[in-house]
Design a protein around this nucleic acid. Structure first.
Lengths: 227, 227
DNA sequence: CATATATGAATTGTATGCAAGACTAGAAAT
DNA sequence: ATTTCTAGTCTTGCATACAATTCATATATG
């Protein structure tokens, strides 16, 4: 599986790098030619990426880079916010000097990139910072989940960071998150991470989602409670 | 992919049903014979299951049903606890009459199974109850993640629920969770769900730690029992 | 002119064959 | 007796071939 594994990584990298955009078709034959292999390991790589949710493999109709609907995208970011919150909560509870130092290093790198306004560099350093938090949760499984989702959202996060002053605001939020984790304040760390990821999207998504069904506008939804 | 997709489902079901125990080898040739297909779709199914974390495909060394270490298992349950907390928090915020009714129905079913001490039935109804909460988060992506992890842990959860009085305690916890969600108390719902899930994890990892040492030999010696 | 249909091209799904790495068992050596 | 080496067998990884389905284009029909 050496071949297929490398291919999976390569294709995933290409998608993350933006070489294939959401909606682009991932044709088995051309990928096979591009990488100089047969279709078999290409298929295996694509199916694995499909299982991870990275791409969309539709039976008999080929694979495309996933195109989440706006609603789905909100949901993904909201989930990311919840998972990062969890990481921050655990990090605040279990912080070790090692993890503290790693976060500090990553934060410093972000600081430099932000000062220089290098959004491409900030994008990379930002990822390292968040990864440091995932690891600081001292739950490698949770960290894996967080990292996987982070990768899936990278295309959209990148766009988000294009805005210039968003860089400095992001950095400031990072400082606040670090502070809360170091203070061992689980609740605060969780809240700040949540807001950092979701910014103001949460209230908006609540609103959007609320349109679908009747919100719990009190009385009516609570009428049939205990019995 | 019709073939491969069915196979993926079948193999996953077999693993969940306990037909293949953790540590068991998933040989391509015998699976191919069993399902009357060639190795190709079998390989594709296995690789997908591997990407989802259900099984462990080691390059050139074949696939086995994952055997998480006690530490890993605890991490998985802790992650499950965090994800379920998140579902509960959102459910408390967004509860609709539909979702409320679905949870109520599932809860009633659990009640009956618990009273009759039917742990196999409770196992199924319990799953429905938790799924109802996932859906009540009104975040289908989060719900998908929750359900996927729930499936991965099913083998361990099932064993856990064997303990008789655990059924009644579990039911009581369910009631408390429902109450908190209906009251719109996000924090309480999250805490109660967290504890509900993590208690299972802790109990189980205690159990695993108790018989830790033989691991593999234990799994293989039980492979003929099937129930 | 629009819609429906049919035919050919392109693409995916599965089977098979072969090469290469991993496992097993037995012999040799300490 | 234990360990190391080696030969043979078994399993996986990849390529190729063929079958089945979808897609595209052109033609026919109202």
């Amino acid at each position: 599986m050496s071949q297929a594994f490398r291919l999976k990584q390569s294709i995933e990298d290409a998608v993350i790098a933006g070489e294939f955009l959401p909606g682009d078709r991932l044709d088995e034959a051309s990928l096979a030619e591009r990488f100089g292999v047969s279709r078999t390991p290409i298929r295996e790589a694509l199916l694995q990426l499909g299982a991870e949710g990275f791409i969309d493999v539709r039976p008999r109709r080929g694979a495309i880079v996933s195109v989440p609907s706006p609603t789905r995208l909100f949901e993904m970011f909201e989930t990311m916010a919840e998972i990062e919150s969890a990481c921050g909560r655990l990090a605040a509870r279990r912080l070790t000097p090692d993890n503290d130092a790693a976060m500090e290093t990553a934060h410093r790198a972000c600081e430099i990139a932000a000062r220089e306004g290098d959004s491409e560099q900030y994008y990379a350093d930002n990822r390292n910072f968040h990864e440091a938090i995932y690891r600081a949760s001292r739950n490698s499984f949770l960290a894996d989940q967080a990292f996987a989702l982070h990768k899936r959202l990278s295309a959209y996060r990148r766009i988000q960071l294009r805005a210039r002053n968003r860089l400095l605001q992001s950095l400031q939020e990072h400082a606040g998150i670090l502070e809360a984790i170091r203070a061992g304040d689980e609740q605060l760390a969780a809240t700040r991470l949540h807001d950092h990821v979701l910014v103001q999207g949460e209230r908006f998504s609540d609103m959007v989602l609320g349109l679908a069904g009747d919100r719990r506008s009190d009385a009516s939804s609570r009428s049939g409670t205990t019995r």
